[in-house]
Amino acid sequence: MRDITIIAAAIPAAEVKDGLLVVPAKEIEGALDGLKRLGGFMLFDISAVDRPTGSPAPQPAASTPGAAPGALAAAASAPASAVPGAAPAQSSAPAQPCFELSYRFMDMREKAKDVLTLRVIIDRDHPVVPSVARLWPAADVLEREVWDLMGIEFSGRLKQERILLKSDFVGHPLRKDFVAPKRERFPSPSWDRKAAEGGL
């Protein structure tokens, strides 16, 4: 894979932390556009983690030596802090409820492949990020899955409907506060039949 610090330098407001590229939520569109312009990447996974009690301070991040070239830009945007719980503010500010959204890429240009992860921390109360399905067609199904199961909305999509669950399902099951609807254990017609026949 190409060196992550070089990639970070080419992307606006990106910062290298614990081997991940971290970008603020409002810069996500620009960051993915930047990666596209760098070329040779394959988007192959989008995943989200629900953190109702806030993102834990990543231990290895504290020991990451040196500052990445992109860190300056990120630090400049950090005081604005429109995004609660954004990566640069983690150490000092109290943890806020958030989602960690990860975009994973494979570098197709280099012979040795590794996973490049782009991490975004988004507000849990207002989980909206711009869709990148037009730039990256692979994101189409992946974004639909994240919305279906985790409830993160991707704005600007042509179609936002459930993909895995049935359309009248209520809630987003992978959220930590999701409670599954109670299911009756044995409303079984064949059991009734057996009872009628005298068995059981």
């Binding site: 099951p173 599954a180 017609p189 064949s190």
Partner: peptide, 16 residues
Amino acid sequence: DSYSVVQGVDTIVPVD
């Protein structure tokens, strides 16, 4: 125990 799985097909059709 899943939120989306029917607990046995005999809740829908009679099973022999």
